[in-house]
């Protein structure tokens, strides 16, 4: 199910009222032309999963927080934000969840470049 990011929080609260009260995972995928945040929700009593996808341009990457709907979103949002460079709006910017990354690109974006093999052999140290 595709949702606009402005409607994301409303949709997820609405689904929670309909019984989808368990958040399985928040993650993201970097398709070269866009970023997509993925929310997996579950209706435990009926054993049904629903996947909500939110598209956004890579240059303007943000999603609203859903932490006040699902408390479990806390770590998932922080992880996604750090690994994909997605801003989570509406929550206090806290400490980094994972260790600090000193590179330029967020690690799980496709623009992240791997170091070349046999590197650093000419440097003095």
């Amino acid at each position: 199910m595709k949702v606009e990011r402005e409607e994301l929080k409303g949709t997820i609260s609405e689904m929670k009222r309909k019984g989808y009260d368990y958040l399985v995972k928040i993650t993201a995928v970097d398709y070269a032309d866009k970023l997509e945040a993925v929310y997996v929700l579950r209706n435990i009593s009926e054993s049904k999963d629903e996947i909500i996808e939110v598209d956004m341009p890579a240059t303007d990457a943000w999603v609203p927080t859903i932490i006040d709907v699902h408390l479990s979103a806390d770590w998932y949002e922080r992880e996604m934000g750090e690994m994909f460079g997605i801003e989570i709006r509406g929550r206090r910017a806290g400490r980094l969840l994972l260790e600090k990354w000193d590179g330029v690109d967020p690690p799980l974006r496709k623009s992240f470049t791997w170091s070349a093999p046999y590197r650093n052999m000419d440097s003095p140290q």
Partner: peptide
């Protein structure tokens, strides 16, 4: 209720 909300 907490367990579901915390996603454990």
């Amino acid at each position: 209720e907490q367990a579901k909300n915390l996603g454990v």
